[in-house]
Design a protein around this nucleic acid. Structure first.
Ligand SMILES: [Mn+2]
Ligand SMILES: [Mn+2]
Ligand SMILES: [Zn+2]
Ligand SMILES: [Zn+2]
Lengths: 153, 153
DNA sequence: TTCTAAATTTAGAACTATTCTATATATGAT
DNA sequence: ATCATATATAGAATAGTTCTAAATTTAGAA
């Protein structure tokens, strides 16, 4: 586990390198977003701030998210199952998996899904977005059995 | 071209078959949505109604869209480039192509894009959504030339 | 034909997520 | 310390959609 102050220094360096002035609020949010948060919404980020950096305004949360997106330290992701934007510290192109039971989003490396457009139309494809839906964790044998038949003592 | 009254009768039949009572408003909207509209937003539908069925309320537009979705005569589609829902008269699974120049959405048959998930994780994939982005119409030679070099008389 | 109960339509209020505006505060170079 | 600029803040405004309560329309029943 990285020491908190060392982690803070590393975040400050990343912010500066990206041309973002490292204010107290930005450092706090960047620490959350870049180490630990997992596809949070703006509301998730505000909730974290309320618990860990009291008095931060919602405007600062949105301002900082937009700033970090512009600086390419995080990415905005819009998925069809919710109207909330989620923020992603993985900034390279990748796909997502939505676990329909838990609502959780998992990252999927592009190498894990072969996508080959063979369009009839002679169009130029400049990008592909893929969302997989299903169950991320396979159900355990126990749970499957419990669902499949009435339990007899 | 189908005669208007025959078309109306066909729409009424489809509504009844789907368990939807064919009121005047619903027939009008279904005609637009099922014959002619191309991935309209609720706003597009309201605009059409204002021109073709005056006095229809926005609530009726939304109520009817929700009803037709429940009846599986249309599908809701949420794409990442806009916060507006679009409505699709193609109800079977398919993909979409966003022309980034025009903003227009085109349907892509699943057979036109090979998608093979090979996840490391042992997850069960129950559905796949694909959005392709790019230029649907290839640029013409003329336009490419005009962009590529200064035009000399 | 009324009558009636249920379904539908309507106008506008409410709501959610986000962006904007105006003011206050903090920063850091001189 | 002063000043100019950047940042943070509270709350208003906005966009898209859903909800609420009242009015209208409808399909049968009488
Ligand atoms: Mn991370
Ligand atoms: Mn059509
Ligand atoms: Zn991701
Ligand atoms: Zn479509």
């Amino acid at each position: 586990m990285m020491k908190s102050s060392a982690e803070q220094a590393a975040i400050e360096k990343r912010l500066k390198a990206a041309g973002v002035r490292p204010t107290a609020q930005r450092i706090a949010l960047a620490r959350f977003l870049l180490n630990g948060a997992d596809h949070p919404t703006a509301e998730d980020v505000k909730k974290w701030a309320d618990e860990n950096f009291p008095k931060m305004s919602l405007a600062t949360v949105y301002n900082t998210l937009a700033l970090l997106v512009r600086a390419k330290l995080i990415k905005e992701v819009k998925l069809p199952h919710t109207s909330r934007v989620i923020y992603d510290d993985r900034v390279s192109a990748h796909y997502h998996f939505l676990d329909e039971k838990s609502g959780k989003i998992y990252d999927v490396d592009p190498s894990e899904v072969e996508v080959k457009p063979r369009l009839k139309k002679n169009a130029s494809v400049r990008g592909v977005e893929v969302l997989l839906r299903g169950r991320w964790e396979s159900e355990s044998r126990q749970i499957r059995e419990r669902r499949g038949k009435t339990h007899v003592q």
